[in-house]
Design a binder for these strands. Structure first.
Lengths: 256, 256
DNA sequence: CGAGTTCTTGACAGTGATCAAGCGACGTGG
DNA sequence: CCACGTCGCTTGATCACTGTCAAGAACTCG
């Protein structure tokens, strides 16, 4: 399982190992390949696939990778760092639509209209692979496995959003927060980090925006979970003490 | 504008014209082509494109086109009828994730895992074109314009869901209901129906599920809009009397 | 070290949920 | 064609969850 060797910057806890910052641009020797590229390529095809990525781009914390209204040209594969995507109404209300980490792809919102319809903000210094969408489409026609991969990425995003709609439409505050924590720690674990500890990259307000709650409610829910001995919270640091209790809150039926 | 000639069964009001039920299966002479197929094909390519659709399938009202857990094989283009898609939790809570009408594509949720993750239920007798996804992918590789079209459809769904997240996360009941009505009537209008009248195909409970509200709240909101002279409601029949008032409720900033 | 941001906690309020009852529409079968 | 049963819709009364407002504490970063 090579997932343990993916490289993430930032001071997450319990890093299993640290790859030095000498990684080539090419996908063919990128540690994140398993996350953002299809599997099972022979080496020479892999070589051709390196053409998807045109350049790299660094975004400082707080910077925008793209904004609503920007012309759409490329998808972006996150190499390091952490993003939020959000949409906003004309009267200034903001909805965080997702949090993205290494190996995930952002920018899919721009395909339909050739303009981005959401903002992508770096929550920590980040590094992305720029994949001009024309390249993606050209190579997709040549490599069915890449074509399938692109379709799966888009479908996964649709299914993820279905899940968020369920959260927002049907779940109470505690269920939403439990689901959020479980989802986040699971994704970090898949990248080689601890399955019980994490350092949140976003504020309570951003969590609240994502979950359809106010920041005070998020804070109170954290405090309640903490009092109940389910988690340990100290600002951005969160440790899950009773994952089963969290799962039970998220899904009351499965009384494991 | 050939959109006026699309054919929808059902007793929507203000049908502009009625095409007889003699339409061939082939996309090349389907009235809905403009809605679910890419534009600007020369006739011979159009011929080849007919291969996307394998068969047609009729679904009775209340019937399932597919269910969560079903193996994924095909996308479906709605020819006639009206669907809802929904996901449900193990403890029986249901979230309607969308309402789909003629010319729209459903089944995209199945691509990522080769299994469907939501249910598609016909809210009235329906007729769909079955497009085996293998065909879609094969022809996409051959025809860039189809490839682009498929990508746009998936991106459009992602953007739509972003909008729903905004509704669910940030909007109050009146705003959600106003947005729902405006969206529905706009889509019907694009299919040649009235821009002010419609017959809802779904129950108050289904609307509520979609909007993250209880059916009583939906009903009360309809009543309030009715008392305010903004709409006229009689059961499933809805007439929009003051579209600008609705838009203003949906988006308080744009005080037109 | 200090200014600003983020987080926590308390008191109170309001929106929408819940519970309950009755009405109206529709479909079926006599 | 009408009676009846079912389902969906409306409306009222009350409640609870989460939002709002406010103050202070803790942390961050220049």
């Amino acid at each position: 399982m090579t997932l343990n060797t993916v490289c993430l910057t930032g001071n997450f806890t319990s890093r299993l190992d640290m790859t030095p910052e000498t990684i080539k641009v090419a996908c063919s020797n990128c540690n994140l390949r398993e996350l953002c590229m299809p599997m099972g390529f022979n080496p020479e095809d892999m070589q051709k696939l390196d053409e998807v990525v045109a350049t790299r781009r660094r975004i400082k914390q707080g910077g925008m990778l793209f904004s609503s209204g920007d012309p759409f040209t490329s998808l972006y594969a996150i190499r390091t760092g952490f993003f939020k995507t959000c949409v906003s109404t004309e009267d200034g209300r903001e909805q965080v639509t997702g949090f993205q980490m290494a190996g995930e792809i952002i920018g899919l919102d721009g395909i339909v209209s050739d303009f981005h319809s959401c903002n992508a903000v770096a929550l920590e210094d980040a590094d992305v692979c720029v994949m001009p969408f024309a390249n993606v489409e050209d190579l997709s026609r040549e490599f069915p496995v890449l074509q399938r991969h692109v379709h799966k990425i888009m479908s996964r995003e649709i299914v993820r959003e279905n899940g968020v709609m369920m959260l927002l439409g049907n779940m109470r505050a505690e269920e939403r927060v439990a689901a959020f924590l479980l989802n986040l720690v699971q994704r970090l674990h898949a990248r080689g980090f601890s399955q019980s500890e994490m350092v949140l990259r976003m504020t309570r307000e951003e969590i609240g925006s994502y979950l359809g709650l106010k920041l005070e409610t998020v804070s109170r829910t954290f405090s309640k979970f903490s009092e109940d001995g389910i988690i340990e919270v100290k600002q951005r640091y969160v440790r899950i003490l009773e994952p089963d209790a969290l799962k039970k809150i998220f899904n009351p039926q499965t009384c494991s």
